[in-house]
Design a protein around this nucleic acid. Sequence first.
DNA 1: ACCTGAACACCGTTCAAGT
DNA 2: ACCTGAACACCGTTCAAGT
Lengths: 242, 242
Amino acid sequence: MAGMATRTTRRSQRRTEALSRERIVGAAVELLDSAGEGGLTFRALAERLSTGSGAIYWHVANKDELLGAATDAVIAGALPAGPGDPAAGPREEIRAVALGLFVAIEEHPWLATQLSAQMARNPWGPVTPRIFERVGRRVRALDVPEENWFTATSVLVHYVLGAAGQNAANTAGARALGPDADRAAFLDSVAKAWEDLDPEDYPLTRAAADQIRDHDDREQFLAGVDLVLAGVMTLRPAAPPS
Amino acid sequence: MAGMATRTTRRSQRRTEALSRERIVGAAVELLDSAGEGGLTFRALAERLSTGSGAIYWHVANKDELLGAATDAVIAGALPAGPGDPAAGPREEIRAVALGLFVAIEEHPWLATQLSAQMARNPWGPVTPRIFERVGRRVRALDVPEENWFTATSVLVHYVLGAAGQNAANTAGARALGPDADRAAFLDSVAKAWEDLDPEDYPLTRAAADQIRDHDDREQFLAGVDLVLAGVMTLRPAAPPS
DNA sequence: ACCTGAACACCGTTCAAGT
DNA sequence: ACCTGAACACCGTTCAAGT
């Protein structure tokens, strides 16, 4: 019965430290990062916090609320408050915010699903306004007519979340291929599958297979952001000075 | 053995009819439509097909594959093959494809999550090429330089899926508010929550609350598509003739 | 007030056994 | 070849009982 342990993976911060919503959310983020969406379990969480699974319910209503709190905690850290860099123009600021979300999702792949879920079924929660405000303010600075703010911001946010999620999935897919496989190997396997499609039905996808093989992910991502920004600029009332 | 039945809610097509992958996928779609993502269960599916839950595994590897097959079946129906309407220009065709996806997701809200999941973690499956090809071909017809096809198509698809998912979630949210509540009531509750935000931190979100209240969903959606298209047009090599 | 941990009502998946 | 249905190893959530 004597635990022969002292494991190096300290799994209980300190069993005397009181449980709190904050500690629970922190442990949930760690679990999501290390074990993925399927790894977050009340039992695993309780073990990591060296408590009973029922105890968590004293601080958190249910798993949905826990996921929402974890999502908001990470986003709040990734999109800090404040007016950003005043030297950069709004376009550069938008690119920076977009890239910030891209990187956050790369570091926490579970964010992609959760952010979409939060914005979709819980738009009154803290996550949606946080992202909307951050992006929308910069869109306004672009001199877009007021009735177009919402459309422009929606397009930007949906694209950013979708593309960043795609990128994170590519990383995850590469890891799943094997520990030695890298991102290029994964994209290559996708390209091969596309090249095997029926030439009759999928000429364009076959032609695009090559492009997917060697592309820089961030560059591609930012090219998409620039495309949206180019569309946004066409909404401005008058021709801008050069 | 004489069934006294002939139930009006025919829940077993005919118990003598052999099980098949096609029947299973069809029943899965019905279950997803009527009971949502949480309603698709091997036990519920087995009951509906009047068979044992284990039998399903003879035709389908696991739940992921079943969800993928259900998603592909619906998308194949919503985006029929063929070159579309040759009379319309590529911009009109892109709007039509986008609206087709929008409507399909409105009718099958579980599609929003599943499409993103399929494109992200299963890009070699049938769903991704189907959508990509349909949209990409029209983008090419816009005379976009070849190296921009992928970016332009990605932006369009990510926006369409994100916005359509948001729309479907609004419909679902309204239903959840109560059987008598409509979409306007739901959006109003979101707007109210946004108006209660801290004016210091969320000036723009508060200002946008009003816009969310009375907006036509399809019109808003198509405005976003047009914004992306405007951005895509800027990629064309030369100034087009009027 | 906060925590424990057994118990409940579910899951997806497997597999010996049937036909 | 195809189907049955009990069994296994999980889940999220509840709740009497403890401190």
